[in-house]
């Protein structure tokens, strides 16, 4: 019960750190989507680029998060941003690229050719085809990529507490340093709950944004 007591006593700070965490994850996700989705769509049109882009994103994903923070610190220190929220958000944006680009690419590639032909037959040009046919069909898979990215980012943002980015990781960091179990456990549990909650919410969004026709198709397949 010590954990509950700790959270109750420091409610103000808990809320502030949660807000910081949400801010970092949300901002990085917005930036990552703005880069990743257009890039994913672009590489469906340029096949020889696709492999390189996805491989590069794959390599970034392989770099351990704390090592990436370490590698970026000297570079961003040149512009005076080695510590704090900026390197954290840059890292989060980089990590989110792989799930977002890959899912966008796969989703648009997997649009059945017959549907594309039907659109063409109705006299759609390339833009209309993309806007009216390809993107609506791809949306559920793209959102699934965003969901993966969001859950991963919550975990990495917790590690970013060590480079002074704030967020709920601060409780884990300071709790370990002070050997204060209540603090560690409340930090760890809050971060985990946050990740599970976001995972569930994004699953809901995924369901909501699935076009009705595809939902029906899935249901009848089951």
């Amino acid at each position: 019960m010590g954990v509950w007591h700790f959270v109750e006593k420091n409610l103000q700070q808990v809320l502030f750190l949660t807000w910081e965490h949400i801010f970092m994850v949300a901002l990085s996700l917005i930036i990552a989507t703005a880069i990743g989705v257009p890039l994913g769509i672009l590489i469906t049109k340029k096949v020889n680029l696709a492999k390189r882009v996805i491989n590069s994103a794959n390599i970034i994903m392989t770099v351990p998060s704390i090592a990436l923070f370490g590698l970026m610190m000297p570079i961003l220190a040149l512009v005076g941003q080695g510590l704090g929220k900026v390197p954290a958000i840059v890292a989060l944006v980089l990590y989110s690229q792989l799930p977002i680009i890959r899912n966008t690419y796969v989703a648009i590639k997997n649009v059945p050719p017959s549907l594309r032909d039907a659109g063409k037959g109705m006299g759609m040009n390339k833009w209309e085809l993309l806007k009216e046919v390809e993107i609506p069909i791809a949306v559920p898979v793209i959102i699934a990529g965003l969901r993966t990215a969001a859950v991963m980012n919550i975990g990495i943002a917790a590690i970013a507490a060590y480079i002074g980015a704030g967020g709920l990781g601060v409780y884990i960091q300071q709790g370990i340093d002070r050997v204060y179990p209540e603090m560690i456990i409340s930090g760890a549990v809050l971060v985990s709950l946050f990740a599970i909650l976001v995972d569930g919410l994004m699953a809901g969004v995924e369901h909501l944004l699935t076009p009705k026709g595809i939902q029906l198709q899935k249901r009848s397949a089951q």
């Binding site: 975990g155 990495i156 590690i159 985990s192 599970i196």
Partner: peptide, 12 residues
């Protein structure tokens, strides 16, 4: 979905 740092912290 549980972050790795949280798992380590809980184990500790």
């Amino acid at each position: 979905t549980i972050p790795s740092l949280a798992v380590l912290a809980l184990a500790m």
